[in-house]
Amino acid sequence: MITVVTAPAAVLSTVAEEVDPTGPEIVRLAADLVETMRAAPGCVGLAAPQIGVSAQVFCVDVTGHPKAVTTHGAFVLCNAKIVEASRWRPGREGCMSVPDLTGDVKRAGRIVVEGLRPGTGEAITLVTDAFEARAVQHEIDHCAGRLFLDRVAGAHAIFPRKVYL
């Protein structure tokens, strides 16, 4: 497992570089992201900037999460862009790069995302909703140099993370 970078690390507030998804280093990065995500209990997504790499690559897997409605299993996207967003609603978010806090963030409940598959460079269009849509938006934000804290309505919407024993 690779160490996750925490705020205020500069890589987390910098727009990540677009990548060539067919490069062997991107294939390795995709595997590292999935391995690191799976090694962290409760983690449903991880972006390259969170492991200190300025690259527009992220993974998501909400399979088995109690809030998941739609799930596409584990996937990795490169250079992803949201092309449609609707059904906006607030929801609580946490982040491995902000380990002590959670916050209420308004996000689209349904999105259409276009990105490239690592390895082949195949263009992918993903239509998703609910919790998976929130996770994808959260990871795309990481690639754009944003944390969930940048999207909360104010200090009243930030909370200490609960620790469950």
Rank of each mutant, 00 (worst) to 15 (best):
T3K: 08
T6P: 12
A9R: 01
A10I: 15
T14E: 05
T14W: 09
A16S: 06
E18Q: 11
E18M: 11
D20L: 01
G23R: 13
R28M: 06
R28G: 06
L29A: 08
A30P: 11
A30Y: 03
A30N: 09
E35G: 02
M37L: 01
A39G: 15
P41H: 12
V44W: 01
A47V: 15
A47E: 06
P49M: 13
Q50T: 05
I51A: 07
V53I: 15
V57Y: 05
F58S: 04
F58Y: 11
V60E: 03
D61R: 12
D61H: 04
V62Y: 04
T63N: 04
H65W: 07
P66K: 00
T71M: 06
H72W: 10
A74D: 13
A74R: 14
F75I: 10
A80C: 04
K81S: 08
E84W: 02
R89H: 14
G91F: 12
E93Y: 09
C95I: 02
C95R: 02
C95A: 01
C95L: 10
M96H: 02
M96C: 00
D100S: 02
G103C: 02
A108H: 11
I111Y: 01
E114W: 07
G119V: 05
T120W: 00
A123H: 15
T128W: 04
T128K: 05
A130D: 11
A133G: 08
H142V: 15
A144F: 06
G145T: 00
R146E: 14
L147N: 00
G154W: 12
A157F: 01
A157S: 05
I158L: 11
P160C: 01
R161I: 08
R161S: 11
K162A: 09
K162W: 03
V163H: 14
Y164Q: 10
